[in-house]
Nucleic acid binder design. Structure first.
Lengths: 141, 141
DNA sequence: AGCTAGTTTAGAACAGTTCTAAATATCTTG
DNA sequence: CAAGATATTTAGAACTGTTCTAAACTAGCT
């Protein structure tokens, strides 16, 4: 069973980082492994740092923050704003929407068919739409 | 020209506060005046505090925070999450959506006809939808 | 190997927000 | 309308997530 190569969208993460002018350092590579290992993940800087430390990866919290932002700029991650106190990063960069569990602060992709967002007026003069976020906030019933 | 009575939805703010078990104190009344004076506003605690101080209202920042949260619980305000660093409060509590100007951190109601959000799957077992937020993020073009 | 520019790091600094407990205001009730 | 009980306000300390700083380290040249 061979070690799975680091990749997203068929292109190796290393390549994408190189293209973004980022050196594939040990820390960035190991964090990329964690981030893109299994499917779509929603995590905060502190979550990821804890996970890394747990697995014996030596990396500082500052580097986790730097890396998350750099990956976001490189288009490997997407930052989601749902909670006033924490920033979530989503490893799924394809247009999709979220459930936010208000009671426990968890974020999840909305599964199944796509949500339709219709009837959005044209962007105001001088601006263009950067993206449309839909967050369905859930609470325990 | 008489002073306009404090009210929202026809019911006086004082009444709504009383019902929420909140005493209509000087600070709460004066902040309500600012908040509900003209149409829909989107403000942060610091914005509101600055505005109050500017108009000679003596109130502490802590009270502004308390008041915003209490008003939110009482259903007079709605908290909108668009920016990781600041909490916005919206004086329009009717279901509606927002433009967020990424470049300057401004929040505005999306005007005109309502946006349709369709095809939202049922809320997961044990949860119910608390609300659906749509944020159209804009950037300078 | 040695150089250079990019990267990482610990810890300090920062911003927005919440907490604390003492002072003050409001609302009863007599 | 004074007294007592309870709610509210406040200044400032504390806290939390995040960013900054500048010194140490590393990757990628040559």
């Amino acid at each position: 069973m061979r070690k799975k190569a680091r990749e997203t969208n068929g292109q190796s993460v290393v390549m994408r980082l190189r293209q973004a002018g980022l050196r594939p350092t040990r820390q960035r590579n190991e964090l990329a492994d964690l981030l893109f290992r299994d499917g779509n993940r929603h995590l905060t800087a502190e979550t990821l740092h804890a996970e890394a430390v747990n697995r014996g990866i030596r990396v500082s919290l500052a580097t986790v923050y730097n890396t998350l932002h750099q990956f976001t700029h490189a288009g490997l991650l997407r930052q989601v704003m749902v909670d006033a106190t924490r920033s979530y990063f989503d490893t799924n960069t394809v247009e999709h929407h979220h459930y936010y569990y208000e009671d426990d602060g968890m974020l999840a992709d909305i599964p199944g068919t796509d949500i339709d967002v219709g009837n959005v007026p044209d962007a105001p003069e001088g601006t263009k739409v950067s993206r449309v976020d839909v967050v369905v906030r859930l609470k325990r019933s």
